[in-house]
């Protein structure tokens, strides 16, 4: 039986639908470049125009990520970030914002080591809405996706250019929150798909699911974000934001770029 926990994610997409526009999903790595700066970036994202937040749980071996997110994870780990620290950042964020959805994104091992049940309870209490765990395909759903649904949180599945028609029903079966379309066969922060290819893929996905569709990988500029916003329900930007966390004045740099991207998304005609 299909279960779709209701969280801030569904409410936010419903509100965006009422506004007649797509959303901006901003990805930043928790603890990058250090816990305090990361806290300020996180708290500033909604006002800068992020409609949903993906918060990266740093991992030592981010196999699906390109150089920008690899470096970002390394900075965060070096500055002492842990999974417990990630949840502290979420709790802090929730003292002022009870509406913006927070999705934790990362790899399974730190969660497995923390303990799935304890992690789900702690994440829910902290105010997390859902998860993207890159190395948990539907074949391994018993590990974390199903317990996640039992806990009333969303597990967001990835569909990719290699996900064929035969496989797509399995991918969407226990998906909730939204479906994340990875627009290129590759790692984060590298190539970009053409708008036409994304439009074709999104319509293929819409035939299989009524979940909102977010599109990510390779979206760097406000124009690219706008192009995605015309065909999908959300544009996800990660590498282009985290690359700015390494430079001078990371808070203003990340939030400034978020404002530019949000303007692109909000200005896009559907």
């Amino acid at each position: 039986m299909r279960r779709r926990p209701e969280t801030r994610i569904g409410r936010r997409f419903a509100a965006l639908g009422d506004e007649g526009r797509a959303g901006l999903v901003a990805f930043v790595t928790a603890g990058d470049p250090d816990p305090e700066t990361s806290r300020r970036i996180l708290r500033g994202l909604p006002a800068a125009g992020a409609d949903l937040i993906e918060l990266g749980m740093p991992f030592s071996d981010p196999m699906a990520d390109g150089p920008a997110i690899q470096a970002s994870s390394q900075r965060a780990l070096k500055a002492g970030m842990t999974l417990t620290g990630v949840l502290s950042l979420v709790r802090d964020f929730r003292t002022d914002d009870d509406a913006t959805p927070i999705i934790l994104m990362g790899y399974y091992n730190p969660i497995y080591v923390y303990g799935v049940d304890r992690f789900l309870a702690d994440a829910k209490a902290a105010g997390v809405d859902g998860f993207i765990v890159v190395d948990l395909p539907p074949e391994e759903e018993a590990d974390f996706c199903l317990p996640c649904l039992d806990a009333g949180l969303n597990f967001i599945y990835l569909a990719t250019p290699t996900t064929d028609e035969a496989r797509l029903p399995r991918v969407v079966e226990n998906a909730s929150g939204f479906l994340y379309y990875v627009s290129i066969a590759g790692i984060t922060g590298t190539g970009s798909a053409t708008a036409d290819a994304v439009a074709a893929a999104v319509s293929r996905l819409r035939a299989r699911t009524d979940l909102p569709i977010g599109v990510g990988f390779g979206i760097k500029t406000p124009d690219q974000a706008a192009a995605i916003a015309r065909v999908a329900d959300a544009a996800v930007v990660g590498s282009a934001l985290v690359a700015l966390a390494a430079g001078d004045d990371p808070v203003n740099a990340v939030l400034g770029r978020t404002r530019d991207l949000a303007a692109g998304v909000r200005g896009a005609r559907r």
């Binding site: 196999m63 699906a64 399974y108 890159v134 190395d135 948990l136 395909p137 074949e139 391994e140 599945y157 990835l158 569909a159 990719t160 250019p161 290699t162 996900t163 064929d164 496989r167 991918v171 990875v182 066969a185 590759g186």
Partner: peptide, 18 residues
């Protein structure tokens, strides 16, 4: 399903799964 007891498995990104 590729598991040896609790070990093994297919903990990979969707792009590789097919």
């Amino acid at each position: 399903d590729g598991h040896f007891g609790i070990h093994g498995g297919r903990y990979v990104a969707e792009t590789l799964m097919p």
